[in-house]
Write a protein that binds this DNA or RNA. Sequence first.
DNA 1: CGAGCAATCTTGACAGTGTCAAGTTTGCGT
DNA 2: ACGCAAACTTGACACTGTCAAGATTGCTCG
Lengths: 187, 187
Amino acid sequence: MTTDRPYHHGDLRRAVLNAALDVIAEHGPGGVGLRDLARRVGVSHAGPVHHFKDKAGLLTAIAAEGFTLLADRLDETKAAGGDFVDLGMTYVRFAIEHRAHFEVMFRPDLYHQDDPVVEAANTRAGNALRAGSSGQPDPELALVAAWSFVHGFATLWNTGALDRPGVEPVELARSVARTLFGAGRAQ
Amino acid sequence: MTTDRPYHHGDLRRAVLNAALDVIAEHGPGGVGLRDLARRVGVSHAGPVHHFKDKAGLLTAIAAEGFTLLADRLDETKAAGGDFVDLGMTYVRFAIEHRAHFEVMFRPDLYHQDDPVVEAANTRAGNALRAGSSGQPDPELALVAAWSFVHGFATLWNTGALDRPGVEPVELARSVARTLFGAGRAQ
DNA sequence: CGAGCAATCTTGACAGTGTCAAGTTTGCGT
DNA sequence: ACGCAAACTTGACACTGTCAAGATTGCTCG
């Protein structure tokens, strides 16, 4: 090939991120390689380094993107009048639909946890979650209970441990959540 | 040094496993390296290969050990008359005390998931868990609910997301579990 | 409009990794 | 006591992340 591609890629950063997300979704975060990503995107082996500094830097960017994406969705369902259970279902849906992001976000050993961008996004998502449980009796315990449940459900589902043939995960999670947390009082 | 250590290590397999568990506890599963482990144990760079075939083979052994250990503990608390909630607390305690094992067990992309040993240990632990929920109304839903909760709690706690100053994790989990699942009926 | 500067990307190198094949040393059963 | 198989070593290869230095480009400011 030795293609006639332009020297400047245009949007290499996004291209590398997308390629990385593909790889993570298929092989997990351990499967990402800077040189492999460079190859997939059609760029020299050190191209990605310039945008992310590190391999950990790349994963930091993915984690940050994931946290802001999650915070956005939580804010949306809150704004749409969603109740406590709805918030949890948004969490589950996010973890399944954005599996690659989710698998990085909660593996702090893979990225630069002290990065200001990722820290800000992380606390934003945390606040959105905390706000959702504020209407419950004993909000602190409710937060731990709900977060643990949806996080565990999503994690187990993604690893295949909860696999039921022909079952829609969010529906299963919702029916379980209803029995755990009641029918879901307003707010 | 070029030590006068014997040609045969004695129990290299266990030594490598222990070294790997140390590394995982400190740096996560991504931090393990076959050559690094060999160095720590004081053996040539390809020594460990003979016992585990692969890097994935090493992690397979760790996962298998983890599942049987978990199954053992679940059986014990069941035999000691523990109820539904007690089983969950055993799960949480295991995940925290054997953090390194736990972090490998639920990352199937890291090891040979189809290995017969790990498969057997996995289903054994699964059965122990399933048996615990058999006394509940709607056992299937109860299993999903309880497993999701304890798994999520343990995972979040281990990543530091649930960190509360001076709080004993199992006690926190127990108090939450009691409000979720009732006072814990017998069996 | 065009010159130069900074951002973007390439090339080349180095240390470190997993894995394999081939040798060496040792314990153990017959 | 002998020999065989298990345990370990040595050496090699392809691959990885990271860095330094160079080539190419878009863009800003005169």
